[in-house]
Simulated assay, not measured.
Amino acid sequence: MRIGVNVGHFAGRPPPDLAARLQEIDAAGFSSVWFAEAYGSDVFTPLAYAAALTSRVRLGTAVAQVPARTPAATAMAAMTLDHLSGGRVVLGLGASGPQVSEGWHGAPYARPLARTREYVSVVRQVLAREAPVSNDGEYFPLPSPGSELGKPLRSSLHPYRASLPVLLGAEGPRNIALSAEVADGWLAMFFAPAFDGFYREALDEGFARRGGRPEGFEVVATVPVVLDDDVDRAADRVRPELALYMGGMGARGANFHHDVFVRMGYESVAARVQELYLDRRKDEAAAAIPTELVEQVALIGPVGKVRRDLDRWESTVVDEIAVQGLPDDVSAVARLL
């Protein structure tokens, strides 16, 4: 199993030692570095920064938000960076959620699967550069309807790789199936090895619509990793982030991260965490998450325990684990994994 690092998005400000940490990750043998975006730092700028500081790791967006850019703009950024990095880019896309899409980007969120499907189609056209790009779809029509001067255009930049991989970030079964149907991989979040069968069924549904699993399809899961002799203390490092996503990323009835834990059988826990978090009792929300739940979606505890727990992941659909956040001790995590 490959191991990468998902730095995520910057909270407050970028880490002051980011350059040195990225070079250390590259030298330590990790397979990839990923960045994210929400409603602050963007995803492509730090990825370009990482490209200039590294020489071997893959460079991934996890994820570039669909509502943040037109599909052509996203393809342009990915294609340009692929050239400058020597073909190391992995383009991860995600629909985001209604709060960010409509409240931050001012873009409609309705029918996110259909919107994503069309978005991927346009991105593929740009990357392939086989013909001028056109699209008669509902969400990203090209040329713009009613335009008198607009015409289909072909990218002036030739792609470094027309086959630049496109992955989809997904949590629900329909979105996971979509990744299997139209993308080159699935970016998983809050993956639990105990539910591997559920994820395989969703992927198989998409592969069936595609006519089979394509060669090279990959599953990359972002996973918190905390090495500590005290398991509960290690879980305490993860609980606040889980509380944020379970309770605060969205509203009641419209939080897809929350729904993941409901499907895992933690409905009462998820409801309590959401209630506390939305009531601004964030510390209590984090404390309400049991250690056993943290252990479902994270690798925590002493080195020996983490090694044993990692064995559960080896038999799952996951091809690569992206360690969530910059590890405290890059070399220790590299030796472990």
Rank of each mutant, 00 (worst) to 15 (best):
S179G: 10
Y39Q: 08
L227C: 10
A221H: 00
V122S: 08
P327K: 04
D184P: 04
A235R: 10
V63K: 07
P240K: 01
T116K: 12
V89C: 09
G146E: 07
R233W: 02
W186Q: 08
Y119N: 03
R2K: 12
Q65W: 00
A110R: 15
S156M: 14
R233S: 03
I25Q: 02
A322N: 02
G4V: 02
A332H: 02
E201P: 06
D328P: 04
A19S: 11
H83G: 04
P98M: 11
G211H: 03
A254R: 15
A221P: 05
P165K: 04
E102L: 13
L293R: 03
R213C: 08
S101F: 12
D196G: 05
S155I: 07
G150Y: 14
A11N: 07
F256Q: 12
P290T: 13
L187P: 09
V317C: 05
Q274P: 08
V182Q: 07
T74F: 08
W34E: 03
L326P: 08
R111W: 15
G247S: 05
A270Q: 07
V220I: 12
L142M: 13
L168N: 04
E275G: 00
D328I: 05
P145H: 11
R209T: 12
L276K: 03
P173N: 10
R13Q: 11
D228R: 02
G60N: 02
R56T: 15
V63W: 05
V220W: 00
S147Y: 12
P240V: 02
R213W: 08
P46C: 07
E24A: 14
G12W: 06
F140D: 08
D232R: 06
L157I: 14
R69M: 12
P290E: 06
D232V: 07
R213I: 10
